[in-house]
Design a protein around this nucleic acid. Structure first.
Lengths: 337, 337
DNA sequence: AAAGGCTGTCGAAGCGCTTCGACACCTATG
DNA sequence: CATAGGTGTCGAAGCGCTTCGACAGCCTTT
């Protein structure tokens, strides 16, 4: 293993000079710099992470806490994680992957040990028990998701309230008056993950404003669960012509069942989905949808974290504006028979 | 930030004694140990990771290199990553998340900087350019996937050859004589990721032995691509009654199209999938399938890595035996009309 | 009773780096 | 020409921990 001292000797300068070449914190003459850089290349030198962390008390590592559950939005989580890792690398940081399993202990461990300089938490619950710890930690953090109390926190999320409103608007504009919402599994609501409720809020309040009726049903993924849910929907609201789906694993079953019941999409029934674009375009009917901008969320989270690490920037809520893309699953409401 | 020295002072012992209490590398009297542990708890001490890494030249971190592409098997990757993180924590290790983006440089960086003690690489290509680096590195590594040349490497993977064979066997036993394989996207084969080819090999050689005909078609996900592929299959082999699908995003389209064409599953056509269980049970027909044991792969990879870190264990190929679970998508071949 | 072996604790060195103050040298200024 | 102010480089201290050798005190063994 090559050390700073060896590089210094090889280049005929002192260790501190090499350090300053590396960090750029003091001016170094062009000739010296080149000589040092040459030595670094020749010897294949890589600074030792531990020593660096110890001396500078910065690890250049960002901790990313991902949810342990893999019951929903897996591709979204993955995409966020990859975006976080990629963006972090771009700025010279590495990413430490923690699962939600450890709970608050993970926060204590990271802040206490100096393992990471900052943390990003995904899948924050409305009343997350890690929040108090983060508030009093001296390490910056960014949440992906929106807890109930955001004081002192920086959060990045899709504006789910606006998303809900957008979906209703689109359907209302097409003349739909009775809308059903197929939501996430009941467990997701019970867990108070926030985004599901917020979508619903946005949806309902805009529906009220537009004079549209909304029926909401949480739903497990898969065909069996959806068969039951759909039957209940049409039972209670036979005139339903618009659907909003916020549950990846309910998308395809919904389309299949509608088809099976002789309800054509979009002639008889319109469907708007809240899902990754890939799901929307690969579905059996290309879905009008609001995408979840996973990459952007990951990128923004890291960038915000970095400005906080630099002392600039601070408490802040970033809500990404939803975009509805019209595809083949929505059309004018059928004229009443 | 609490330091070892502060704990030592608080407990009225020397720093080294605290260190030995923590590491257990020398015997400590029960009373001293308790006093120290008490102080640690009271002060909320966490060892500083950088200092520890520097002094011991072990970071207690495992690097996990995940593929950058999110075009396939995303849930599987995620599940592996989570299993790796969880298992690692169980043994006192943390996980550093690297994307394939950096290529061989990632390996150099990690080995050079002592950032991690060992690495796990996912999505290894048959002739991966990182392999030579890993061979000469003094850090242990484990591959998830099987490259062409495995000398000096430890690999963990599903036995895809056996998987292919198992699928054919099952269909052959049910009397199917003409089998079509719907594979991954052509790009996956071009990239030489290995597992796709191995499945095909196992499939073909067992088919030959059993006197079954096999037609293989790579296929992009989604309905459009599958419509074309399926038409070609039935065009070339009208008597096809068995399908093996190894492409998550082709599963549902296949079922839908078959249904649409009036081919009942499993009465007219049988379908076996190679996919995560979740996909198999959530499909519109509960699929007979060979699961990809993502959790197990992640767990085994970490455990192997740890034995290598301890100096025990070494070069080794672990092929997990596939298990075929019969569900509702396969049945006896229809009697010829 | 002396020699030897354990056990439990301590002090000190050192891991590889960053960073502060010092200082030699050079150039502009009065 | 002496002085002030930059530049560019160096030496040394110290980050918080692990680990090695030393050794005091005790218990066996001969």
């Amino acid at each position: 293993m090559v050390t700073l001292a060896e590089v210094a000797q090889h280049a005929g300068v002192s260790a501190s000079t090499v350090s300053y070449v590396l960090s750029g914190k003091r001016s170094i003459s062009a000739t010296t710099r080149q000589r040092v850089e040459q030595s670094i290349r020749e010897l294949g030198y890589h600074p030792n992470a531990g020593a660096r962390a110890l001396a500078s008390s910065r690890s250049n590592i960002i901790a990313l806490v991902i949810p342990l559950r893999t019951d929903m939005y897996v591709p979204v989580m993955m995409e966020i994680a990859i975006a976080v890792a990629t963006t972090a690398r771009l700025h010279g940081y590495d990413v430490l992957l923690l699962t939600g399993e450890e709970g608050p202990d993970a926060v204590r461990r990271v802040t206490g040990s100096g393992l990471a300089d900052a943390m990003i938490l995904m899948d924050v619950e409305l009343d997350d028990e890690r929040l108090p710890l983060l508030r009093e930690a001296d390490q910056p953090s960014v949440l992906i998701g929106l807890p109930a109390d955001t004081t002192g926190m920086t959060c990045v999320d899709l504006d789910f309230t606006a998303t809900g409103a957008l979906c209703v608007e689109h359907l209302a504009m097409l003349g739909h008056r009775d809308i059903a919402v197929i939501g996430e599994a009941p467990a997701v609501y019970e867990r108070h993950t926030g985004f599901a409720e917020r979508t619903l809020d946005g949806l309902r309040s805009r529906a009220r404003a537009l004079g549209v009726r909304v029926l909401h049903r949480p739903c497990e993924g898969g065909y069996d669960a959806l068969t039951v849910t759909l039957a209940r929907v049409f039972d209670e609201r036979p005139g339903t012509t618009g659907f909003v789906v916020q549950n990846e694993s309910a998308v395809e079953p919904l389309l299949a069942l509608l088809r099976q019941q002789g309800r054509a999409v979009p002639e008889d029934v319109s469907v708007v989905a809240v899902c990754p674009d890939q799901v929307a375009v690969q579905a059996s009917v290309r879905l009008t949808s609001v995408a979840i901008p996973a990459q952007e969320m990951g990128r923004r989270a890291v960038e915000h974290l970095l400005t906080k690490l630099e002392g600039r920037g601070n408490e802040d809520i970033v809500l990404l504006a939803p975009e509805l893309v019209v595809r083949a699953s929505t059309g004018p409401a059928p004229v009443a028979p």
